[in-house]
Design a protein around this nucleic acid. Structure first.
Lengths: 343, 343
DNA sequence: TTGAAAGCGGTACCAG
DNA sequence: CTGGTACCGCTTTCAA
């Protein structure tokens, strides 16, 4: 390879075969690039003879031609990318179902859903990184807190809709309010209805859950008729055991445990510490996971109705087509207490 | 707006402001586009005066300029996209942790991780869709089964590495063997060592889990010294109850329940049906989830050591840089039985 | 030290 | 019905 004197293929002689382009297809089919484009995109505005179509199709097939998305969208001046920043928190089956529905629905509307791992990026870094892809819409799930400036960056980069799911609206963005406050409020109200007056609220120590846990705590606080105490706890046996050990000193008669998984963990620790559920302590979780029904006593919980993915997808689509016509705040979350045996 | 006679800006008069380009930055800074590129990319090969750099930086800042990734990679002839097709199955915290580690590690190596939702796409459709993005590497987690032809499509589109995680290698791809067989084998071996001879293996009815569950079943079958029977079961209380109801007729003295969650579900149903664990039935799960330790009796399990995300990321990087130098099969998974009270 | 210009792969005008 | 061609935004020689 070192001294091939006059190779006719200067680029990448030893390396992999070059990626076939539409020009290659055109050459092989004996037509122009324009014709290739027309045929492969089923252009309505122009009539191509059937034999030509076949030739082009066959040439494309033979070469294994796949169009270059970047080139296409560069030319088009816009993409159909919907950017979905991924959170690093395994946030439960409820949420991931919702995400999957959403993806599915968006694909049906012919959007390309790109989940962009935004782990450990600041809002500024994230917004820039996302903007480079020129997404037509961004659906930020709350992992990253977007400043108004960040929203502006995205809009300037061509995003027709910036949608934030979460407790708080960001100026300039469409806010899909999924008010986690409601969850805490329902839980506390239920406990109060059961005659409890001093309620502990488990707040996960794990990072990234704040955006869920803080509003849930707030919501509980807002419920009239009870004192509320925040109880930081990690999702480990040790942490739960430690919390259970100092339980008597806390003087609480009920606990809202962030979600069913934390509830299960704490309930077990409380039971092992000799407390009776619900006589000594009423326990309620959230998210209505299957495990809650398997516990003894069966776990009371707060069921959350997530918005359907289709609905959100439709909203995104509308926002993209007519940015002005879609209102800026939507309330999409309903929460209801599900009493079982643990309260 | 309706009759401005000779507006100097014909394109998109009423619509959103045009996305600022490097040409806009150049104009504002009073330099050429080339200079802008040099400055913003910190080009080493060329020396730009400090005043010019400042002017360019300020202009970019003022306009909120963000480079266009598509244009950049079109010019460059390659991307730094690592495509990570997402599964629609919430496959557990173990797996999602691994994914997050991987993303993080890849970002550190300056790759752009794009999770591409491939829900309900066939192998062919998926391969084409992915190829359009011209990813430099594809890490297929097994949701989609890639044919050799699909791998070829991706390679032809410029993918320097196609990596499959999963039980089976695909010709042409780098196979990262995460042999789930081992999991089943360990579970069965443990049960046999406990003196059990007729083992049921729960096989989830849920779609998309086959690629995990089938090898786990196979592995159990391969363990000498016991009969194995497959037990289809959905992740619902009804399904578990139904299975528990016909348990006596099955004549089994042990069960390997796919993973800890299915184990918990089934164990509860068996207990409710009056069977004693482990006296009547030994139960073992897999994945060593926290919930297993919270159950009574405590759940025996098979702990799986996932490969570290950094390790896989490094491997991807190496494969990208020197496609030939990386061997095609890697074994990355180790499984060990963790005996607790349920066996 | 900076600028002019070519070209990456596709699309869509306009001419033939 | 089909071909020529300009252009999307950016990088990178090559000259000035």
């Amino acid at each position: 390879m070192s001294h091939s004197s006059k190779s006719p293929t200067p680029p990448t002689p030893p390396a992999s075969a070059p990626v076939p382009t539409s020009a290659d297809v055109a050459r092989l089919a004996g037509v122009s690039r324009a014709t290739v484009s027309y045929v492969l995109n089923n252009a309505e505005a122009v009539r191509i003879s059937e034999p030509t179509r076949r030739k082009v199709r066959e040439a494309a097939e033979e070469l294994g031609y796949v169009p270059h998305a970047a080139a296409r969208s560069l030319r088009a001046g816009h993409t159909r990318i919907v950017l979905l920043p991924t959170s690093h928190v395994p946030v439960g089956p409820l949420y991931s179902n919702f995400l999957n529905e959403l993806q599915w629905a968006l694909r049906r509307l012919d959007y390309t859903v790109v989940q962009y791992g935004s782990l450990g990026l600041s809002g500024d870094e994230a917004a820039r990184a996302w903007a480079e892809l020129r997404p037509v819409a961004v659906i930020s799930l709350g992992e990253i807190t977007l400043s108004p400036h960040n929203v502006a960056t995205l809009k300037r980069a061509g995003a027709r809709a910036v949608i934030t799911l979460g407790p708080v609206g960001v100026p300039g963005a469409h806010a899909l309010v999924m008010d986690q406050t409601e969850v805490g409020a329902r839980a506390a109200a239920h406990l109060v209805a059961r005659g409890r007056r001093r309620i502990g609220v488990v707040v996960p120590r794990e990072e990234g859950l704040d955006l869920f846990s803080a509003p849930r705590l707030e919501g509980a606080r807002s419920a009239a008729g009870a004192e509320v105490e925040a109880l930081p706890m990690a999702y480990t046996e040790e942490s739960a055991t430690a919390l259970a050990a100092r339980w008597p000193s806390l003087g609480l008669d009920a606990v809202f445990a962030y979600n069913d998984e934390y509830a299960m963990l704490l309930m077990r620790a409380l039971q092992d510490a000799g407390l009776r559920i619900p006589e000594d302590v009423a326990v309620i979780g959230a998210d209505d996971l299957l495990i809650g029904r398997l516990l003894r006593p069966r776990l009371s919980t707060v069921r959350i109705e997530m918005p359907s993915g289709d609905r959100l997808a439709a909203l995104v689509d509308r926002a993209v087509r007519e940015p002005s016509e879609v209102t800026h705040r939507h309330d999409l979350l309903t929460a209801t207490a599900v009493p079982r045996e643990s309260t």
